[in-house]
Design a protein around this nucleic acid. Structure first.
Lengths: 203, 203
DNA sequence: CAGAGTACCGAACGGTCATTCGAACTCCGA
DNA sequence: TCGGAGTTCGAATGACCGTTCGGTACTCTG
């Protein structure tokens, strides 16, 4: 991998191209799998020779790391921001899940890759940052659940957390943008499952 | 791949060995990924030379197919049996989810492989049977949800189905047999989330 | 114990793939 | 228009891996 160009005018183009590679790679990895996609396949999709890709990335694995980073880092940042904002503590859970589902849906390919390559992510020191991001985010969700504990439909909070993680992550596998549900609809559905029905409802 | 031995006395040993290969393969595939596990790795784990494995399996992919088949076929069969049994129609959902979670937990490695290699399963005619099993099973779950529709906490049944699929499948990723929750506990938790609280409860 | 059927070995093969690298080309800045 | 930084090509490389196959040792059967 070459270092990025020093001249600012060229730097922009370089960054744009690099971004294109990440995006196309995420799409192909999601469809055919990481190992099922050769560097040549990817290069052909971009429109350059295989060797040319290494101008933008040091290795195939670094590309994969970048995909996962781009997924987790902004999500974590936004979630932290939300957490520090004021707002009814009980309603933070709903906002968090909305943010989360929206993110998953907006980066479906990244998410599918992230899930499919779990075994790679779990091993190796080069994945430490990605693992830390995921852990930190899950911790935020856990805290939000804790704050809504008195309204939780499930006595076991660990189980509630696992259930929520399962539901939201699985969303990447079935959600279609042109469907009838918005990401917020989906998120609200999940939260409604987790929380007891409002008490002001007389039967 | 050689044909199985004709002599019955040897057939038993052959079958046992084959089963051992499937089990060990599922375990390694779950941990290191399908592509991350070489045939030599697997052979070493079994304790024979790489070539020797081909005595029991035609190819690495056939082995993967077998793993997925062994996961889905018994599950589908048991689910169908349950469905045809008598029992309160409303309670079939709970029994089905219990059966399902128990199965997922008992075959965690198979399940993890099944999820991780989704992109392979979706392609190619040799995977048709596996895809059909999964589809049929999901259909059974859908029907059970339908029957419990009047007690569902979520108006949107498709969303409820997706949520349930997400929760249960995700269970393979966190459940530990030595934990404090039994599979039935977990299953009941999921069902409790999906169903409205019982109406006979006076506040 | 003989010999057929069975299990496994171990070396080799063919193919694929990530990665490297020097040359060639493009295009910006002066 | 020129020089050089930046970009891409294309061929080569080296490693790895799934699979094959002929031979060997083992085991059950009669």
């Amino acid at each position: 991998m070459a270092s990025p160009p020093a001249r600012p005018a060229l730097r922009a183009r370089y960054d744009r191209r690099q971004e294109e590679v990440v995006e196309k790679a995420a799409h192909m990895f999601a469809r055919r799998g990481y190992d099922g996609t050769t560097v040549s396949d990817l290069a052909e999709e971009i429109g350059i020779a295989a060797g040319g890709l290494y101008h933008y990335f040091g290795s195939k694995e670094q590309l994969l790391i970048r995909i996962c980073d781009q997924l987790m880092e902004p999500l974590l940042a936004e979630a932290r921001e939300l957490r520090e904002s004021d707002g009814a503590p009980g309603e933070q859970l709903r906002d968090l899940v909305r943010l989360w589902v929206t993110h998953v849906v907006a980066h479906r390919d990244h998410m599918l890759v992230f899930q499919q390559e779990r075994h790679v992510i779990e091993r190796g020191p080069q994945w430490r940052a990605v693992r830390a991001s995921r852990k930190a985010f899950e911790r935020l969700v856990e805290d939000a659940l804790e704050e809504a504990a008195d309204r939780l439909a499930l006595p076991d909070r660990r189980l509630a957390l696992s259930a929520l993680l399962g539901m939201v992550n699985h969303t990447a596998q079935w959600y279609r943008p042109r469907g009838r549900l918005t990401p917020a609809d989906v998120a609200d559905g999940y939260v409604d499952l987790l929380l007891d029905p409002p008490t002001h409802d007389p039967r």
